[in-house]
Amino acid sequence: MPMLTLDALTKTYKTGDQALKAVTLDVPAGQVLALIGPSGAGKSTLIRCINRLVEPTSGTATLDGVELTRLGPAALRRERRRMGMIFQEYALVERLTVMENVLSGRLGYVGFWRSLTRRYPQRDVDEAFRLLDRVGLLHMADKRADQLSGGQRQRVGICRALIQDPALLLVDEPTASLDPKTSRQIMRLICELCAERGLAAIINIHDVALAQRFVARVIGLRMGEIVYDGPPDGLSPDKLTEIYGEEDWEATIEKVDEEDDAVEAAE
C-alpha cells in the first residue's frame, strides 16, 4: 500500500482559478520525488493541500490510511506532526534563535506552557543539538535566525522539519534564492537525510537539472495537471516542452553532467 495517496485532489481558488485539476498520485514509503513545472502550475498548492495549509476543494489525500482531507482541527494538528515542511525562502521566524526555530518543530508534541516557557523535554533538546550537529550548525544554536546566511537558514529549516519525526517531507522550492553550489548542497543534504531516515519526500523545484540529478522520480505539473510521471532520464525535450512550453532544451539537459563535474571539482 502506498504511504501517501492523492485521489482526484482539486483546488479551485475563490477567484475561479483552478490550481489543481483532479490530481491523482501514489507515493510509496521512502520515495523521494521531484515536482517540476512552470510558476503557477500548482506545485505549491499541491503540497499545501496535503498538509492543508490550503484547503482542497474536493478529492482526498490519505497518509498511511488516515484521510487527511476530512480531519477536524485537533486531528489535523496531530497528523501535521507527521509531515515536515521545508519552505522557499526558509520561513524561519527571524527574531527567534536557531534553537527556538528548531524546537518549534516539536510544538505539535509539547503542551502550551512548556512551549511558552521554552522548557522542552531533554529528549527534544538533545535531538535538536544532534540535528544541528548533523547539518554543521551546532555552534550557531543561540544565534538569531536572521544572522545566518541563506544556506545556513535552510539547514535550520531542515532541522525544524526533521525534529517533528515525520514520515513525509513536503519541500517547497528549497533552493530558490540560493546560489548554485549551495543549492546542490541543500538538495544533497535533503536527499541524504531522507535516505538515512527512510522518509518519503515531495520536492517542488524549478531547476530541472538539479531535480534530475538527485531524485528517482519526477512529476511534471502543468496548469494543475500531471503531464509527466517517470524517471528523470525520461525527460526528453518534447516532454519539457509539454511541461514548460517552447524553448531550446538541449542545453539544459546536456549541461547536467558537465556542471556536476565542475562543482564536484570545486568542492
Binding site: 495549509l53 494538528r77 496531530r78 501535521r80 515542511m85 519552505f87 524561519l92 521566524v93 518549534s104 517533528q164
Partner: peptide, 12 residues
C-alpha cells in the same frame, strides 16, 4: 510564511 511554517508543525 514565518507564521505558516509554525502552523505546519502542528502547533495549536
Amino acid at each position: 510564511s514565518q507564521a505558516e511554517a509554525v502552523r505546519a508543525t502542528g502547533a495549536r
